[in-house]
Design a protein around this nucleic acid. Sequence first.
DNA 1: TTTCATTGATGACATATGTCACTACATTTT
DNA 2: AAAATGTAGTGACATATGTCATCAATGAAA
Lengths: 200, 200
Amino acid sequence: MIRIIIAEDQLLLRGALAALLSLEDDIEVVAEANDGLEALKLIKLHKPNVLVTDIEMPKYSGIEVAQKLKRENSNIRILIVTTFARPGYLQRARDAGVTGYILKDTSSDELSQAVRTVASGGTVIAPELSQASWVLPDSLNDREREILRLAEAGKTNKQISKALNLTLGTVRNYLTEAMHKLGASNRIEAFRTARENGWL
Amino acid sequence: MIRIIIAEDQLLLRGALAALLSLEDDIEVVAEANDGLEALKLIKLHKPNVLVTDIEMPKYSGIEVAQKLKRENSNIRILIVTTFARPGYLQRARDAGVTGYILKDTSSDELSQAVRTVASGGTVIAPELSQASWVLPDSLNDREREILRLAEAGKTNKQISKALNLTLGTVRNYLTEAMHKLGASNRIEAFRTARENGWL
DNA sequence: TTTCATTGATGACATATGTCACTACATTTT
DNA sequence: AAAATGTAGTGACATATGTCATCAATGAAA
């Protein structure tokens, strides 16, 4: 029997996933979490074999949960079920020891099959991601990432420089550098590209 | 018996919604659509009582589908189930004759109850929205909207002016005006605010 | 220890953005 | 017909943004 926990903040989908997976003879849903923090607590409590989780959730993202579990040398298997086919997400997920990554645009059959594969030590990657767009490596550094995030929030260079205790000129330099790395010709293109690739 | 069609592009959620609603004795799922266009075709074919639909879908959005149905004087009831609590969406949905608007973060019980209410001629609005709706009226005009959309895509004023056959100065004037209306101090804040309110 | 990479800074420059007052014209309203 | 409204434009101005070459301090690697 494969014991699983489901972490997903959309109640409707969470309930549905639980219902669908409970129908399988070899799968038992032992708990459901509404956010990353709750997921961690429930995992410690129930020691399931597999965590089926969304990425974008309150408290901790699915990727952060995976990172924490890895740091604790947990031997739980993780299957991420997300809307976003973002190369950067997949990259970080794999680095965090995640062995399953599928999209919400798959069938319930594929979902339960993925749970089984992951539970038995296998790897499942959504076909949309397995080949495509590896091409761009994330070359942004932390400063560039921070600055892009603030730019995305509508901050001016001056506000960014105050927030990060940097000079106005330095902020502009980092932004220029980020734009070059991303092939963007202004800050808006830059943070959009970074966001779409899952680098923010 | 309430005959319904479900339109939702995420396969997993669509299947789950269908499964959940099929469990109810008084509800029958007669078809499922993957996008707005398919939904319209299936409605003509099956003449269901209620359309349960997402907003953000390929081909036509749920709101566009509602608008087309209204123009054809269809007497189908529409229940929108969406992730987004955006006042502007709700506003446009109501203008299109939609009588149900709930969030994906509700329970399956509330969902089936909402279907019944809408089917019998009632109205259901997510509580998160029923108050917030009239906070800010959407005072943007079409030009401002277009320009904000292009700005959001990372276009410069010059590119926008070429795309819309306007003068550079005119584009800047519209942008300034939009920023004033939205209480924003630059284009990024402007299109973010507009987007969050569902005005783009 | 010398070299190298990283991180942050400066200054000068061109271009883009945002602000405002005012104009012009066509279409509605009154 | 006169007034109001909507749509687009001009010009002048200040500030923000993006580009580059160059410099300095620090810490890690050779």
